[in-house]
Design a protein around this nucleic acid. Structure first.
Lengths: 198, 198
DNA sequence: TCATAAGTGATATGTTCATACCACCAAGAT
DNA sequence: ATCTTGGTGGTATGAACATATCACTTATGA
């Protein structure tokens, strides 16, 4: 067969352009035309690689989730041997926060998809809740490790869910409130102080 | 001058239709045409009362915020005389949660606007952060009341911000995860247990 | 070498939308 | 009574969009 063109690389190039457009101008501004212009290619190419717009947007969403997942595993493996429960939880929660430009972009993009999923059956609850549920389980496990045998299973799970919810809420604040950046370190420390021990 | 037609009532009728459309089909589905159809009036009327689409959407946003504010004051005044700090904070936080159909609709609508505001300069940070900041201040005040003179001002403020962020995060979960409704009572109680006392 | 199909471009089509424009009605003022 | 203006409806216009179609190019395999 003819030609070469690495499909995966092409698709990544296009979804990256889409992510920039969505983060800058919103999900509604992500049209075939705007994304093609951002990527420096023709409209036809975007269609060629993704077909319909719905499939294209879903692929973009998956790309963001995959990147976030990769960052998580990298972050956790960088913790070194024998991390304390608090170190593990701290690593997980800070990874949820938009602390640099790339993470900020991805947070905005995921936020846009999350809002869109509420009013469209194209995205299932598993798409939006799968990752959070995994995080809650992981954190609950660390809490039980920190609290020892006296720990109540159910309570650890509730606390973990509260911590993820709180950090997600902080992420929203960081997106809007410029002054929040200075507070976020103290806020996270305080949350860990209150929550990690029994 | 001729005719009567209560403008405020008409505007409320139209923004109510817009809120239903946005909650059901998303912000992008809120067009002059869809809103006019939902309200049972002509497209021309929506234009007549609101002018451009931007002004129309801003008016819809303001209507949601005004309703939420009214619910807050009503809820707080229904607490009776001499409520405990925990009662006050509990009332504020439960009011943030989508616990019935109307609140769920408004939560989705506010969420849509919040996401849109991130990528458009039409909505200022004050529009989205004004209310949360007021809630944080109010809760911090209650925390100081609960903790007595030993309370650290700064810490109470941090804790209040964490509580609002956590509850907002829980609200997001409730919108997506059907099973969360059964947990939310225990989650809020646990959050108050952990946070209200020093 | 040349036929084939992947890859790429330009453009057409039909729809939906925001907004503008034109016409009409109804009621209060004169 | 009729003029005048707020209120209402229908429709036109031009832009943006998703999608489809036609045409061209190029590398590979026979």
């Amino acid at each position: 067969m003819p030609k070469l063109a690495d499909h995966d690389q092409r698709r990544a190039q296009i979804t990256s352009a889409a992510r920039r457009v969505i983060a800058r101008d919103g999900l509604g501004a992500a049209t075939f035309q705007s994304v093609a212009a951002e990527a420096g290619i023709s409209v036809r190419l975007v269609q060629y690689y993704f077909g319909t717009k719905q499939k294209f947007l879903l692929a973009t969403h998956r790309a963001v989730v995959a990147d976030a997942g990769a960052r998580f595993t990298e972050r956790l493996s960088a913790l070194g041997a024998d991390p304390t429960p608090r170190e593990v939880v701290h690593a997980i929660l800070t990874e949820l926060l938009p602390t640099d430009a790339a993470r900020r972009r991805d947070t905005i993009v995921l936020n846009s998809f999350h809002a869109a999923a509420l009013t469209s059956p194209d995205v299932t609850a598993e798409d939006t809740m799968g990752a959070p549920r995994f995080l809650v389980r992981t954190i609950a496990e660390q809490l039980r490790r920190a609290r020892g045998d006296a720990a109540d299973q159910r309570t650890a799970e509730l606390d973990a869910e509260l911590m993820v919810a709180g950090t997600s809420g902080l992420a929203q604040t960081l997106l809007v409130d410029d002054g929040a950046e200075a507070r976020v370190g103290a806020l996270l420390d305080r949350l860990l102080d209150r929550m990690v021990e029994a």
